[in-house]
Write a protein that binds this DNA or RNA. Sequence first.
DNA 1: AAACGGTTTAACCAAATGGTTAACAAATAT
DNA 2: ATATTTGTTAACCATTTGGTTAAACCGTTT
Lengths: 206, 206
Amino acid sequence: MTTEEKILLAAKKSFFEKGYDGAKMQDIANDAGINKAMLHYYFRSKELLYEKVNMSFAKVIIPQINSLVDTELNIFQTIENFVEIYLEFLQKNPDLPSYFIGEMNRNHDMFFKVLSENATQPNFVAFAQKIYSAIEQKEIRPVNPIQLILNIISLCIFPYLAAPMLQYATQSDDTFIGEIIANRKKEITSFILHSLTNQNDVLYEN
Amino acid sequence: MTTEEKILLAAKKSFFEKGYDGAKMQDIANDAGINKAMLHYYFRSKELLYEKVNMSFAKVIIPQINSLVDTELNIFQTIENFVEIYLEFLQKNPDLPSYFIGEMNRNHDMFFKVLSENATQPNFVAFAQKIYSAIEQKEIRPVNPIQLILNIISLCIFPYLAAPMLQYATQSDDTFIGEIIANRKKEITSFILHSLTNQNDVLYEN
DNA sequence: AAACGGTTTAACCAAATGGTTAACAAATAT
DNA sequence: ATATTTGTTAACCATTTGGTTAAACCGTTT
């Protein structure tokens, strides 16, 4: 592994764990097993290093998230597919959501700078289209597509954000939380599809 | 307003905006319009100040969240009620979720220390019970109560966490996002109740 | 083997940061 | 009125932190 790679790896770890402010250059150098001056030799400043770190994994991650809906599947398969790929991705990157949320709120400008330089926009339009026509075909009940997409993503991501809280609230061990997360795919899909295929008016709704 | 109150207010603002590491004692003092030494005079250290700040609003907020299910309502009303109160609370404290998530993940130990010293556990058991009996009465389809509660909370909180992202993804203005959030109550309630009252097997589910 | 380029290090620097101190002002008690 | 406690300030201190520098190292070229 080259020095540059060692730095990026250690830096990513530090920024993930502690955020931009909490991460210290000396710690990153120690963790990479090199002299602190190397950080500046390769990346000039903490800010540039932070940018490079985010760039390097944004390039890998964003396309994965965005290429979810370009399929020939019907609405039900599309949703199932979306949930499955999303959750698989999250299982591989369980600490990504809290990093994203944290940095997005605390470090707004740089976050969106990095995002805009890498992001092919997610193909939500195609997804929304598919929802529209499914409603027209009466395959699903009428819903606002944006709200539906927001619902789906909420159900997928939130448990990863709230995992420590969930553990605290249920006062249980890791195993139990792991089980909940493992069952999530089935639960979410079922939850959504039940909701969408129920054409009846619902009691107590206003 | 006493000096102590001025400090707590400025400190809360700083910690909320920048997190523990990002917040600086000098900034807090400036913002409160007092000398930096006062911070230490009243609160001894940054860590103690942070703890006090969190304590002071945890005391107010936690009971609000926890006292949601002690009612004589049926399952549908309970869920509607829960969503309504939850969303109302969030509308009043829109930046609380990202602060919570951020500090919970970065400052794990202190977060739960503060929580455990204040928390009357939320009454999820009562909620789960109500879900159980509703299933027995065949008022709703069979679901895992914990998963259902997790779903409900996900749907309520996540949009607040993702608001900047949502704005970016939809490339729209504040008004549009505000509209989405405003429609959330109806959307979430409808989404959940449709899902729960659909007793049919669902297509494409495995 | 001497010169050269990129790489790496130890030592150093200035600014920022959390925290302290000693003197001073303003209440409060005697 | 005066002593005493409480509140407040400016100046100061030690450490941390991001960043720099000059010298050393090392493989390659000449």
